[in-house]
């Protein structure tokens, strides 16, 4: 038996699963927006603007979900500042939840700035203060701020898996691949979200085709990492002989294999994107609850 089976479950449930999902989309969307911004064509600009908006909204939702999930939500700032020595910063470079809190804070800041810049560019800001801020984020500055938001997005998409690995829980700590898996899933779900939302912001067919081609590659990487993740678990894999194993299987079938097939057959981009989102959610659902559920067996066995 793996030594991880003796630890206790942290009761990370729906709010955290939603955060992992939304944070992944926001991080992936931000990364793709920055890449399109830096390396794409001028006609790809609507995709970049959509990505920055997805990142900003996702970062705000992520912060809210994390705060609500705390046992004492009003003390959320204890993660950023030392409560007894305010305003001394609270930061542990070796604790994923500590550097993740700072990551979310900075990601929110930069993604909101880039989103405001994009909205100002489209003339969609009516509030004078927001218009002033958005108007300032343009040209080279907008690219730099967007690039930082993209790098932070990459971090947000992946650190959640690292956070799970840096525990003593079954599945999460039994292999080193969860960070890479969540990152790949975050990028593929981010691309899927942009495929669904960017047409509403004026994205061209060519832009969407480029996104779709990338999503195919991201899904292949995700599938490969998932195989490596499962292989690294060894004997712990018996935990998948449960309802959550079935959920994971459905997630892989409908969320990775089916969209890959649809991309190969050049069928509905939107349909494939919806399935990718479903798969990303089920992956997190299965990974979290399969480990959380082991608590019941631990208690039943008097451990």
């Amino acid at each position: 038996m793996s030594d991880t089976f003796f630890s206790g479950a942290p009761h990370w449930a729906w709010l955290i699963i939603l955060y992992f999902f939304v944070g992944g989309i926001a991080g992936g969307g931000s990364l793709l927006a920055a890449i399109v911004d830096w390396f794409g064509a001028p006609e790809d600009r609507p995709v970049a603007r959509t990505g920055y908006n997805v990142a900003a909204v996702g970062a705000i939702i992520s912060g809210a979900l994390l705060t609500i999930d705390l046992g004492r939500p009003l003390r959320f700032w204890h993660m950023l500042f030392q409560s007894a020595n305010f305003p001394t910063l609270m930061f542990k470079g070796w604790s994923p939840i500590s550097f993740g809190a700072w990551g979310i804070f900075l990601f929110g800041l930069f993604s909101v700035l880039t989103a405001l810049g994009g909205m100002a560019e489209e003339g969609r800001l009516h509030n004078p203060a927001l218009r002033a801020v958005g108007g300032a984020v343009r040209g080279t500055l907008a690219k730099v701020v967007g690039g930082v938001a993209g790098l932070l997005g990459l971090f947000i998409a992946g650190y959640t898996g690292v956070l799970l690995s840096v525990t003593n829980r079954p599945i999460w700590a039994d292999g080193p691949w969860l960070g890479a898996l969540f990152l790949a899933s975050g990028v593929s779900t981010g691309a899927a979200t942009l495929i669904l939302l960017a047409p509403g912001r004026g994205a061209t067919e060519q832009s969407l085709a480029r996104l779709s081609a990338f999503d195919t590659k991201a899904l292949v990487v995700e599938l490969l990492v998932l195989v490596l993740f499962v292989a690294s678990l060894g004997a712990v894999n018996r935990v998948w002989l449960s309802f959550w194993g079935l959920v994971l299987l459905v997630g892989v079938g409908f969320g990775i294999l089916a969209p890959l097939r649809m991309h190969a057959q050049r069928r509905s981009l939107a349909g494939a994107a919806r399935l990718v989102l479903l798969g990303g959610f089920l992956l997190r659902l299965a990974t979290i609850f399969a480990s959380e559920g082991i608590e019941r067996y631990r208690v039943a066995a008097g451990m």
Binding site: D3, G8, G71, H78
Partner: peptide
């Protein structure tokens, strides 16, 4: 009075000692 109930310590303890 400092803990905010994030529960990272629960998952980190190899002995299952801590809880809310």
């Amino acid at each position: 009075d400092v803990c905010n109930g994030c529960r990272a310590c629960i998952a980190a303890c190899p002995f299952g000692v801590i809880d809310i």
